[in-house]
């Protein structure tokens, strides 16, 4: 059984994932133009409630399997925090970038 642990964060979707069904929020955490690995990225729903958290890959990538709606993506890192909002109008891949510092 798969647990709730964070799967590896990659820029491409695993082969078993159907992007036609899943609402995927994918993006990078950046400091200026430099990707930030090891940042803690939190997905908050439209009421600000915590939904999920992942740690970015060495290339700064993160990914959430969400649902259509408005989301806030907030990143924490020892160099600083940052956040941005994203509206997912339906299933598919939604790109998002968060800047910290």
């Amino acid at each position: 059984m798969s647990g709730c642990g964070a799967p590896e964060q990659t820029a491409t979707l695993p082969a078993n994932i159907d992007a036609g069904k899943e609402t995927v929020l994918h993006g990078k955490v950046l400091a200026g133009e430099t990707p930030v690995g090891g940042a803690y990225v939190r997905l908050l729903d439209s009421s600000g409630e915590f939904t999920a958290e992942v740690v970015t890959s060495a290339d700064g990538d993160f990914r959430f399997f969400a649902a259509p709606g408005d989301w806030t993506v907030r990143a924490l890192h020892r160099s600083g925090n940052g956040e941005t909002t994203v509206s997912a109008d339906g299933p598919g891949l939604h790109q998002v970038a968060v800047t910290v510092g």
Partner: peptide
């Protein structure tokens, strides 16, 4: 669980596939 899992909108935390 998160409100969306509680209500039945999601089946797993949002960093995991939902099937």
């Amino acid at each position: 669980r998160s409100p969306d899992e509680f209500s039945g909108k999601l089946l797993a935390p949002a960093h995991l596939p939902q099937e």
